[in-house]
């Protein structure tokens, strides 16, 4: 925190001294950003943008995570599910932005299209993580359970319980990914949202807005992650 304050101070001072002409406008100083932030908070713009984006993350990211959990469990179990592994691996490296044209064609301009982008990104993170979590369950634990008489569904439950902390951690990673692609998702068609604030920085020649948008995004992502951690997701995972 102290380092941050020092860096901001440096930015402010160097900015005042070195930035002239159009650069004085293009690179806003922390004080300017602070002003803009205060104004936007007062007017409720930040609140509205946050609400819209948070809802998108919840619906889109949530859907992707739920689907990812199911598919990840199917693939991670081995057997028939493993078949899904290869097609998923082919699709995974394609960045969310590349999906924008297709999603626009299929879903048109609107919330559904944005949910699709968010869901897609979250889905891949979660399937990979869930599969890893199941792979990492120590064989000795499963063997012990079997040795003591556990079979069938009971045995599957043992695997799940053993993987639970890692599964929770994966869901948090999914959430982080949803926030991460939010701006790209809102790029083309959103009218309200954090991404919109970020884009307005250029459109309105008010780069301070972009910084306010980034700050809001960072805080929102951090708080939602902290919330999940509080509730117990991924607690105890050493990474």
């Amino acid at each position: 925190m102290r380092l941050l304050a020092v860096l901001l101070g440096l930015w402010e001072v160097l900015g005042r001294v070195c930035l002239t002409g159009r650069w004085a406008i293009l690179i806003p100083l922390p004080s300017r950003i602070g002003e803009e932030l205060a104004a936007m908070l007062a007017s409720g713009e930040v609140g509205v943008a946050l609400a819209h984006s948070a809802l998108r993350v919840l619906v889109g990211g949530g859907t992707g995570a739920a689907l990812g959990l199911v598919v990840g469990l199917l693939v991670g179990r081995g057997g028939f599910g493993r078949v899904l592994g290869s097609p998923l691996a082919l699709v995974r490296p394609i960045p969310p932005i590349a999906w924008i044209p297709l999603t626009l064609l299929w879903f048109g301009v609107g919330e559904l299209q944005q949910w699709a982008i968010l869901a897609g990104a979250t889905f891949h993170v979660v399937t990979a993580g869930v599969r890893d979590a199941l792979d990492r369950v120590p064989a000795s634990l499963v063997e012990s359970a079997k040795n003591l008489g556990s079979r069938g569904f009971g045995l599957e439950l043992v695997r799940l319980r053993a993987a639970a902390p890692e599964l929770g951690f994966t869901l948090r990673e999914g959430l982080a990914m949803a926030w991460f692609v939010l701006v790209a998702a809102e790029l083309v068609s959103a009218t309200e949202g954090i991404g919109v604030l970020v884009l307005q920085g250029r459109d309105l020649l008010l780069p301070a807005r972009t910084f306010v948008g980034m700050l809001t995004l960072s805080v929102a992502a951090g708080l939602s992650d902290a919330l999940l951690r509080r509730v117990g997701f991924g607690v105890g995972v050493q990474r």
Partner: peptide, 12 residues
């Protein structure tokens, strides 16, 4: 039943 050096207790 096999019991090894690693007790493999269920952590939950």
């Amino acid at each position: 039943v096999l019991v090894s050096q690693d007790p493999a207790l269920f952590p939950w």
